[in-house]
């Protein structure tokens, strides 16, 4: 009769994405189903971060939130929303992303072994350095930078930077001890993970040098145990609404972090010049072409999908 969904709590439970994003949604679910469906976060991860998707497929967890980028190669389509210069406002982009998912990605059979309740993007990343400001591509030469995705890693490597891998948990130790010179990261993560003391120069990339794509998914068999009426009520709370809520939280917290950064760093918080942005755009062009080829293999028209996504973002912004 009543269904309890185990949520894979791999991200810090105090982080606003959980405390202000997912937990209120869990409460809404219990409320609209009159307690017939409840969500219980686990005390510690039921599966490691890169196994979020599999954990839900196999029923290890019933519900999970996580980035697509943690399993390279599995979700080639989602790299589209991770490209630079496209995520100005994560809330508006996430609303557009859900529509893109419904119109272009879902029909390809992607994520067909789970029930997808949300698809959103995180705030765009900037170039955060321990010391020297980066104002042009040449400044990145020889700099050791932690990179979150293979695409950023390849591009930075090509322009002479030294991409260093490492988990988010290790970021603080790497930054504070100077193992890395900087990282590409969104402002809200810098403050959210309390590493802002070690960042002394930020170069903001409008629309982000990258973004993350994330899913909110439910195990199919567990979903079937829920009555059609309750599923309908949960769907009404989810999809575009949930995706936008998550994206908007990212955007709002990014703005807060940006304001705090600007106040503290003063002129050391800069926006990349048009010339620098053009340099970056050129550096990314090969990667974009390579993605289009992969997207065609996966069964979508990449140009149409990109145009649809841009148009939806523009519409949402009006």
């Amino acid at each position: 009769e009543s269904v309890t969904l185990r949520y894979n709590q791999w991200f810090p439970s105090g982080h606003w994405s959980q405390a202000e994003g997912l937990y209120p949604w869990f409460e809404d679910i219990a409320r609209v189903t009159e307690g017939r469906v409840t969500v219980e976060p686990s005390a510690k991860p039921l599966a490691p971060p890169n196994r979020n998707y599999q954990a839900v497929v196999d029923g290890v967890a019933d519900i999970a939130w996580g980035p697509h980028g943690y399993t390279p190669g599995v979700f080639p389509l989602t790299e589209m929303v991770e490209f630079p210069f496209i995520t100005e406002n994560a809330g508006l982009s996430s609303r557009a992303y859900w529509r893109l998912w419904k119109a272009h990605f879902e029909p390809t059979g992607m994520q067909s072994d789970v029930v997808t309740l949300g698809m959103h993007v995180t705030a765009g990343g900037n170039i955060s350095m321990r010391e020297a400001q980066v104002t042009r591509l040449a400044d990145l030469k020889g700099k050791k930078l932690r990179v979150p995705t293979p695409v950023v890693g390849r591009v930075l490597g090509k322009i002479g930077a030294v991409p260093v891998s490492g988990s988010l948990g290790e970021l603080r130790e790497m930054l504070s001890r100077g193992i890395i010179d900087g990282t590409v990261i969104s402002d809200e993560l810098v403050t959210g993970f309390h590493v802002d003391d070690d960042v002394h120069a930020v170069t903001r990339i409008p629309g982000g040098i990258f973004s993350n794509s994330a899913f909110i998914i439910v195990n199919k068999a567990k979903w079937e145990q829920i009555s059609e009426q309750d599923r309908e009520a949960i769907r009404a709370l989810s999809g575009e609404r949930l995706s936008e809520i998550m994206g908007r939280l990212w955007h709002e917290n990014d703005l807060k972090a940006r304001a705090a950064f600007q106040e503290r760093l003063g002129t050391a918080y800069q926006t990349a010049s048009d010339a620098f942005q053009d340099e970056l755009r050129a550096a990314y062009s090969d990667e974009l072409e390579a993605w289009k080829a992969r997207a065609r293999d996966a069964g979508i028209d990449p140009e149409a999908a990109l145009a649809f996504y841009r148009q939806q973002i523009a519409e949402a912004g009006e």
Binding site: Q54, T71, P72, G73, V74, T149, P150, G153, P163, S165
Partner: peptide, 17 residues
């Protein structure tokens, strides 16, 4: 088998997982 089906690769190591 699962990783093969999903075509999962490593992040930096040029290898299927």
């Amino acid at each position: 088998g699962a990783l093969m089906r999903w075509r999962e690769t490593f992040l930096f190591l040029p290898l299927e997982k």
